[in-house]
């Protein structure tokens, strides 16, 4: 296949950026999107040009490093798919593809398509943990967790922290990200001890990082490569109301 790529190029955090056009002339439908970009970069390097910088790591859809807005949609808009698991068979010969980075005040661009997602770490550092002293390893089945609660908690814990939720949100809100961790821990006995402090601290940190406010667009759920449900945001809101009570 032959493709025309419009790629966001930006030399550094404060440099002006713009879309530049590249031709990809030998694209196999079996390639992943990142392998296609690798080949484009090989050509650029051979020509003595600066290759396109983009984040990637496991290329198995589980690490949350890849982060691109493809044709206006985070991770390309395919249901429950990261960029690395998006394959070129999803495109047609002659397609024009727009490739841009996450754009949010809280995700500053490092270079080209690579952004700094340290602010997600800061939200986790503010409260996305438990600090109970548990002693030695507990006996098996000493602390029983119902199957429904375990499933609920695991569904929330599926988040890979890629940033697609805030990047696809019209308000650049990190509410789905914060809600995953709040919900995951709030239903477990280990997490309930610090539940009140956690929800307030994580929300305050998200605001301090420059993320916007949630207005229930639900774009985050549609963009999430793990399909995390906005019911966790409702859970976060309930946890917040509980935290306001004495």
């Amino acid at each position: 296949m032959k493709l025309k790529l419009h790629v966001w190029r930006q030399k550094g955090p404060n440099a002006p950026g713009k879309l530049e056009t590249y031709e990809a002339n030998h694209v196999s439908p079996d390639q992943s999107f990142l392998e296609m970009l690798d080949e484009v970069n090989e050509v650029l390097v051979k020509e003595g040009k600066d290759p396109i910088a983009f984040d990637h790591d496991c290329r198995e859809g589980i690490c949350g490093m890849c982060s691109q807005i493809i044709n206006g949609m985070a991770h390309g808009g395919q249901d429950r798919t990261t960029v690395c698991q998006l394959h070129m068979r999803s495109f047609k010969d002659g397609d024009e593809i727009f490739i841009e980075p996450w754009k949010a005040k809280a995700f500053p661009i490092i270079k080209d398509l690579a952004v700094d997602r340290g602010n997600y770490d800061r939200i986790i550092q503010a409260g996305g943990y438990t600090s109970c002293h548990t002693g030695g390893v507990a006996d098996g089945n000493a602390l029983l967790i119902g199957k429904e609660i375990a499933d609920y908690s695991m569904d929330a814990a599926e988040c890979i922290g890629c940033g697609a939720c805030a990047a696809s949100c019209p308000n650049s809100s990190a509410m789905l990200f914060a809600s995953n961790k709040v919900a995951q821990l709030a239903v477990l006995p280990q997490g309930q001890v610090e539940a009140k402090r956690r929800v307030v601290a994580m929300l305050d940190e998200a605001t301090a990082c420059g993320f916007g406010n949630c207005t229930n667009h639900y774009e985050c759920q549609a963009a999430c490569p793990k399909g995390i449900n906005v019911k966790f945001i409702a859970k976060l809101n309930r946890e917040y109301l509980k935290a306001l009570l004495p």
């Binding site: 807005i69 727009f98 005040k105 308000n171 809100s173 207005t215 667009h217």
Partner: peptide, 26 residues
């Protein structure tokens, strides 16, 4: 809240395609 949300996205992507939200919500 709207002003804060606008400030959280100072530069928008050139291409934006919404998957779920609609005119009323935006």
């Amino acid at each position: 809240l709207t002003l804060e949300n606008k400030a959280a996205t100072p530069d928008k992507n050139v291409q934006i395609k919404r998957l779920k939200t609609g005119f009323a919500a935006e």
